[in-house]
């Protein structure tokens, strides 16, 4: 990977002046990914925070070509763009080498956009799909998605006498992408920019589809201070809520393994977020234990996968 300083000195491909919230994780992830994109790109973005905040007509924050058409179809849209490129290139009508990237939030990736992404991956288009996972439909004001963790308050998994926030665990989307036999899949976090950017580099270098799932703290939806985004992303990784790993042609590699005390209790991380405040009131101890159990089970599972499929 090029040195971070060199990358930082390259022209921005997502310019400042966009309207994303202070402390939003999404543009950090986008800039880290686009910072290592080896050539001109076409970016497809599903409807969501990133899209509405970066393309307020007649302005755009994108220096590359960008297309948005709807919520559930970033995968299908980029497959159309990439196919057009292949057709025109074969016919000698265009010369430049170009790259194809899609960005979707968790709503546009885990939920409504899953079919479109699955189809595009199965067909083997040459593109990189980046999910910025902030764990809910934040753009419409915090509604649960299948990426929302158990126990989280959202406006559609509210807290009340009969409910301690979302009752179900998250969908393991990265595993679903791995099940497609995708050539490259990874999780990443913006706090570890070196890791994220080297994964993006690998993704761009992969012929065929590649997928990166990036945790993206949302100060508004998580009820956290804007200056804590990077620290919260880091702690998500340390607690193994968001393990960093990659799967290259079926081979697993965990990029960060907290040993002993370094693996922090998830409750410490939850406590810093207003969306989990209710879990620390008496009566919700079992929910907290459930969340920890689930994280431990998934972490053990991942260690075993790495052991068997390294």
């Amino acid at each position: 990977m090029a040195k971070p300083k060199e990358i930082a000195n390259k022209p921005e491909r997502l310019t400042g002046g966009h309207r994303l919230c202070a402390g939003c994780g999404a543009p950090v992830a986008v800039r880290q990914v686009m910072g290592v994109c080896p050539g001109p790109a076409v970016v497809s973005v599903s409807t969501g925070c990133l899209e509405v905040s970066t393309t307020i007509y007649p302005y755009t924050a994108w220096k590359d070509s960008m297309i948005h058409s709807a919520f559930e179809n970033a995968g299908a849209t980029i497959s159309g763009v990439e196919t057009a490129y292949n057709s025109l290139k074969k016919q000698g009508k265009i010369k430049d080498d170009m790259y194809f990237v899609a960005f979707g939030g968790d709503g546009g990736t885990y939920d409504i956009g899953l079919q479109s992404l699955s189809g595009a991956v199965e067909r083997g288009h040459n593109f990189v799909f980046v999910c910025y996972d902030n764990g809910a439909y934040m753009n419409t004001g915090f509604q649960r998605s299948s990426a929302t963790p158990q126990g989280a308050w959202t406006t559609t998994s509210p807290v009340g006498k009969e409910s301690a926030g979302k009752q179900q665990n998250r969908k393991d989307l990265t595993a679903i992408l791995v099940a497609h036999d995708i050539p490259y899949a990874a999780t990443a976090s913006p706090h570890n920019f070196k890791d994220l950017m080297s994964k993006a580099e690998k993704a761009f270098a992969t012929p065929g589809p590649a997928f990166i799932n990036v945790i993206s703290p949302c100060p508004r939806g998580w009820r956290t201070p804007g200056d804590q985004t990077i620290a919260l992303a880091k702690e998500a990784v340390q607690s193994c809520y968001w393990p960093l790993y990659e799967v290259e042609n079926g081979k697993y590699k965990i990029n960060y393994k907290p040993k002993g005390d370094k693996k922090t209790p998830v409750a410490d991380w939850l406590k810093k977020q207003g969306r989990f405040a209710h879990l620390f009131k008496p009566g919700n101890e079992a929910v907290l234990a459930d969340i920890q159990d689930y994280i431990d089970r998934k972490w053990e599972e991942l260690l075993k996968k790495e052991e068997c499929l390294a």
């Binding site: 899209e51 509405v52 393309t55 307020i56 007509y57 302005y59 994108w62 220096k63 960008m66 058409s69």
Partner: peptide
């Protein structure tokens, strides 16, 4: 480069 499908609210 162009942005297609901008937010036009």
């Amino acid at each position: 480069p162009v942005t297609v499908g901008a937010f036009d609210s």
